[in-house]
Design a protein around this nucleic acid. Sequence first.
DNA 1: TTGCGGATTGACAGCGTTGTCAAATCGTAT
DNA 2: ATACGATTTGACAACGCTGTCAATCCGCAA
Lengths: 347, 347
Amino acid sequence: MRPVTLKDVALRAGVSPKTVSRVINGELHVRPEVRAAVQRIVDELDYRPNAFARSLSSSRSYLLGLFLDDPGSGYAADLQLGALMRCRERSYHLVVEPLDITAPNWAGQIIDSIRALRLDGAILTPPICDSEALLDLLDSEGLAYVRISPRGDATRSGLIEMDDRSAAREMTEHLIGLGHRHIGFIKGDPAHSVSLKRFEGFTDAMTAAGLTLRPGDVREGDFSFRSGLRIGEEMLGGTAFPSAIFASNDDMALGVLITAMRLGIGVPDRLSVAGFDDAPTSRAAWPQITTIRQPKGEMAAGAVDILVDPSYRASPTSAHFRRLLDYELVDRLSTGPNTRDGSSQRS
Amino acid sequence: MRPVTLKDVALRAGVSPKTVSRVINGELHVRPEVRAAVQRIVDELDYRPNAFARSLSSSRSYLLGLFLDDPGSGYAADLQLGALMRCRERSYHLVVEPLDITAPNWAGQIIDSIRALRLDGAILTPPICDSEALLDLLDSEGLAYVRISPRGDATRSGLIEMDDRSAAREMTEHLIGLGHRHIGFIKGDPAHSVSLKRFEGFTDAMTAAGLTLRPGDVREGDFSFRSGLRIGEEMLGGTAFPSAIFASNDDMALGVLITAMRLGIGVPDRLSVAGFDDAPTSRAAWPQITTIRQPKGEMAAGAVDILVDPSYRASPTSAHFRRLLDYELVDRLSTGPNTRDGSSQRS
DNA sequence: TTGCGGATTGACAGCGTTGTCAAATCGTAT
DNA sequence: ATACGATTTGACAACGCTGTCAATCCGCAA
């Protein structure tokens, strides 16, 4: 029951282990007939290279790390799935590491993974991808990383992002197009860089349309359902509430939706609600929530692609490693034409 | 920038590499003062053993595999988190492998992970933990595994389970206790062993209370929100619908809830809805769904504990490695007293 | 003091692969 | 036929650690 080794294959094929190694790794300088012969034995014996031995001698581990702040979230699950699939295609493996940057010993934990596992690269997700301390640490460990939706125009690494700002602008324009003039906005957790971007997109569209905000129209949540619930109550409690509310993610949108329901405010008849993310909850809600679809799986897959690219380490900041992916506005039932004569449009 | 090796520590501490190895692994037969001295150097140099070298020479990999049928589900995410945390405590690492048993080449994929990574053990989740073919494969590869909520009283391995049957019975009794006499049930995906168990628990309680089921009171879903929606329509479409519906999981319960809402059937006034799982959606819904909390994280953590136990390989079927965890009925707002005089109770 | 058994330590080989570099082989120009 | 460079192959060491086993050390009894 000893696993088949490279040596076994070599013996059987009548060549040296090194030649088998060359075939396995698709290196040049092997005569085609030798290559074929070796390949046949490999298939016959169903040989699989031992990743440990390999990495021990080559200093590549064929392991990528996915560092997650909140591994339980749907966002994390989607990213993970995308990364997982792409890793498999490229015969890499993925090690998922939860990382709480507010914990006292976070650095130690991460160093463990890096040194013990000799990761070939890491995928950094928001909000931890914005921690300078973390980036410094990774740099000092010599670990290549790609960030997903990092803050600002940071140029420290390859990155994958989506134009959150214009997505939010588009959604806002969509609401304005439906006749809404008095639109409320719920910001996300300020620790996430996308929170600001989405808010900017919102104000872009409002400004462009010549619409003004009143105090209380913009509130700050933390991306949680609970915060949506709370803010929903605050905003919808009075009489002159907006005819549409745009929440920075679906969970908060759902909170607003449910609050509206509870208060007997019909959606979308008296209130339109829009979200962001296309989380599963946005489809499970009633009415289904109009939202922005983020290609989360693709983003993670793209990060894998970059990390396994041999030329990435040499020039991590090349434009080729900064990718912008498309979003999509998903128009569902939680938004509709404005049927109210909001006082705001006359003022 | 070469990483610190065991040899470096040995040199610095003035002992042999082997002695350092002993200290690192907490082996006996090291004089306390030597142990302390070595430990000091280890800390000073912040030395981390190279997992690859270690596993290459010892045939332990310190790697556990989590095999997931549906990596995107909330259930999977919860398990993963639990496993992840426990792995970290035990200084193991977790490799997550999505595994589609219906795909043509599933076996090849899994063999890759096992042989290449030399996993020390695997955690098998439903429904793949019930695949005889998979178990045979793992056995033949000599890989230890623990199953979570496997079908029947299978004795092939250690396992972690919850008493789904009595949990479902308890929930049903809860509904009966609220005065419901006409109760509908939505089964889960028959590929999952828990589907049957939950149904049995339901009929246990119904039978014990002397309640009979009419045709159409029991329907089969597939655990998806969509199937809950569909079945909700089927059940609530007529006039003589049940006063309570117990769905085998929260997603389906949510489907029923939303259908009821759409049809103008007040919950819990005219209809009580109960779920199972305590999924995030059950809390995000309005009204929040009464459900059964499964200790998913603990289950996965327990599986890790078993796998890292050195004595597990010797006697995997010992009773000590068959663990039953507790559930909890979470009474929320989607269930309430029966206020209708259902015709069923007079017949 | 000597001898003995157990506790402690270290030398050495080997885990399975790849990097390095030298050797062998080939084709072709002389 | 000979020599030359390019191509192809293999020998060997090394990656960092642990298993094995022999060597050394200790305390204590004789």
